[in-house]
Simulated assay, not measured.
Amino acid sequence: MNYLPCEIIETDNDVDASVIWLHGLGANGHDFVPIVPELQLPDDLKIRFIFPHAPSIPVTINGGMTMPAWYDILAMTTEREFNHDQLLDSSKAVITLIEREIEQGIESSRIVLAGFSQGGAVAYQTALAYDKPIAGLMAMSTYFATHQTIKVHPNNSKLPIHVFHGQHDPVVPEMMGQQALKYLQDFGFQPVYKNYPMEHAVHPAEIKDISIFLQKVLS
């Protein structure tokens, strides 16, 4: 089995939960590693944080430049024109990481998916369509790219979801985060939505809210 290369941080020698966290366009798996200690999680949360590296591919909106990306973006419209097949391929690659965690003894219901920006679009597709129940989904500064095509699996139809967005985001405008919220509600989810006085980034208050969410779904 070929797995995505990953950065891995464990908060204990005997982990019983996993968080798979997907970076944004042009970044890599190192991007969110420094946030782990900032979460200030309690000692009884024994988590393996997995930060995969996206493959490097040509990206149309950046003049065809090759960079880490989960899928090609063809146009920066409010609905985003993107390579649907590549997004699904990235989702499948993330599922192999989930399955590896299960094979290593982590119950699916102890696995959280998280994604920032483009990584969040992949996280939406993966978490909601996955056929085993997972613990939760964190969608950060992102959009629900596959809302028209996704088939939500019954095992994750009640998934706890937290949506985070910047009020001044010039890359993924907050309207796109609010649209994702509506799409989720239309599917019957009851997501929590919080925004922050930031651009396309992570706010200190958001880090605190991420910590609270992880403690809620993994305690």
Rank of each mutant, 00 (worst) to 15 (best):
L39P: 02
Q179N: 09
Y3N: 04
H84M: 11
Q148E: 13
K208E: 15
I102A: 08
L4F: 01
V122C: 04
S109N: 15
R80C: 07
I57W: 04
K46C: 02
G63N: 02
E103W: 02
E7K: 14
V172T: 04
V171H: 05
A121H: 01
K132R: 15
G119V: 04
R100E: 08
T126R: 03
A135I: 13
L218W: 03
A75S: 07
I102K: 11
L184Y: 08
G188A: 14
I150H: 14
F49H: 06
E10F: 05
V15A: 05
T78V: 10
V171Q: 09
T146K: 02
A205G: 12
D85A: 14
S219R: 13
F49T: 07
M176C: 11
W70S: 08
P42K: 09
N156Y: 04
L214D: 03
I161W: 09
W70T: 09
P154E: 06
E99Q: 08
H23F: 07
Q86S: 12
E99N: 08
G119L: 06
Y143P: 00
Y143Q: 12
A123S: 12
P154W: 01
I57G: 00
E103G: 08
K194I: 00
Q190R: 08
L88F: 11
E199Q: 13
Y71H: 07
V152C: 03
I9S: 11
V94G: 00
M1N: 10
V217C: 04
P55G: 00
L41C: 07
S56T: 08
P197L: 11
E174P: 00
Y71T: 02
P204Q: 15
L25T: 03
M175V: 14
G166L: 12
V192T: 12
L214C: 04
V202S: 09
L159C: 10
V192K: 06
V217K: 02
D186V: 12
M175G: 08
D43W: 02
E199G: 12
F164L: 07
E107M: 03
F49L: 07
F116T: 01
E81C: 00
S18I: 03
